[in-house]
């Protein structure tokens, strides 16, 4: 009875989390949902006489793999949320149809199957207990496969290093190079800081120039975009106008950026972003 309750609770949670993972726009949320599913599964393993696997599931999947996913998400850009407009014609319809069809088929198959009474693992683990039995299998019958997995892991680690490593083709720019670039650019001075007002001193507030107009460049364009997308615009129409304008500039740049495919160009962009002064090309 306890198992049944556990199952139903966890089944509902895991299916809901899985659906949430698929249908959430934000990759970070998806990752968290996946973590939920994995934890549920770990409990289900434990319930089904597989405590070793439950531990491995939590340590390897929820611990290591999910962390890796989150790291990569940070690296690739947390802000990049998917747009939900489907570009491939019919893809979504067919995908849902196929998914439902497949699930139906599995359910039909499993439902039609006639299972013998559960044997349980009590018999096989009677001698020496559960962990010993698992160890016995891994290190005797499957020792060869086990050794091969070690080779696989080493290869994967090496492969990841090779793939993620970036060869530096040019010298790292020195301070001199950077300042030269800055002075050759259209803006030698640092960008103005955000404005400080009685009503707010947030980083998304444009500063005012001596003539009273809003300094667009004082707002980070990503922040401006966020503000526009989430309707966090300040009440003052002048400032709101400046933020909107800044967000439009950002949109224009994003149009262009993906086309710059060369690594060098990419490096320059990143270098420029690293510097506090936005030395754009």
């Amino acid at each position: 009875m306890g198992e049944t309750i556990t199952f139903w609770v966890l089944a509902v949670v895991s299916v809901g989390a899985a659906l949430g993972m698929v249908f959430n726009r934000k990759a970070v949320y998806s990752a968290l949902m996946l973590g939920t599913v994995m934890l549920c599964l770990a409990v289900l393993y434990a319930v089904q006489d597989a405590p070793f696997l439950a531990a491995v599931q939590i340590i390897v999947y929820t611990g290591a793999i999910m962390m890796l996913f989150l790291f990569v998400l940070m690296l690739v850009g947390v802000d990049s949320s998917d747009s939900f407009v489907e570009t491939l014609k019919g893809q979504r319809v067919w995908a849902v149809l196929a998914g439902i069809g497949f699930a139906t088929l599995i359910i039909l198959a499993v439902g039609n199957a006639i299972f013998a009474p559960e044997v349980g693992l009590a018999q096989v683990t009677a001698q020496g207990g559960y962990i010993r039995s698992i160890a016995l299998l891994i290190f005797t019958k499957y020792v060869f496969a086990f050794e091969i997995t070690s080779a696989l892991l080493i290869t994967a680690a090496l492969g990841a290093m090779v793939l993620a490593h970036r060869e530096r083709l040019t010298d790292k720019p020195t301070q001199k190079d950077l300042s030269r670039a800055r002075f050759l650019g259209d803006r030698p001075s640092p960008l103005p800081g955000p404005g400080t007002y009685a009503t707010g001193n947030a980083i998304d507030m444009p500063a005012l120039l001596p003539d009273g107009s809003a300094a667009e460049s004082s707002v980070n364009r990503y922040i401006a975009r966020y503000d526009v997308e989430h309707d966090h615009l300040p009440d003052d129409p002048r400032l709101a106008e400046a933020i909107k304008h800044r967000a439009e500039e950002d949109a224009d740049e994003r149009e262009i950026a993906p086309r710059a495919e060369e690594q060098d160009a990419e490096a320059e962009v990143r270098d420029a972003e690293e510097t506090p002064n936005e030395v754009t090309k």
């Binding site: 491939l88 893809q91 067919w94 995908a95 196929a98 998914g99 069809g101 497949f102 088929l105 599995i106 039909l108 198959a109």
Partner: peptide, 24 residues
């Protein structure tokens, strides 16, 4: 051959579903 990996994946998945259905 559209070049979209998702299209290929869809055809694989539909194929797998059909195969399962046939087996059943």
């Amino acid at each position: 051959q559209t070049g979209f990996a998702r299209t290929y994946a869809l055809s694989i998945f539909i194929g797998a579903a059909l195969l399962t259905g046939a087996l059943l």
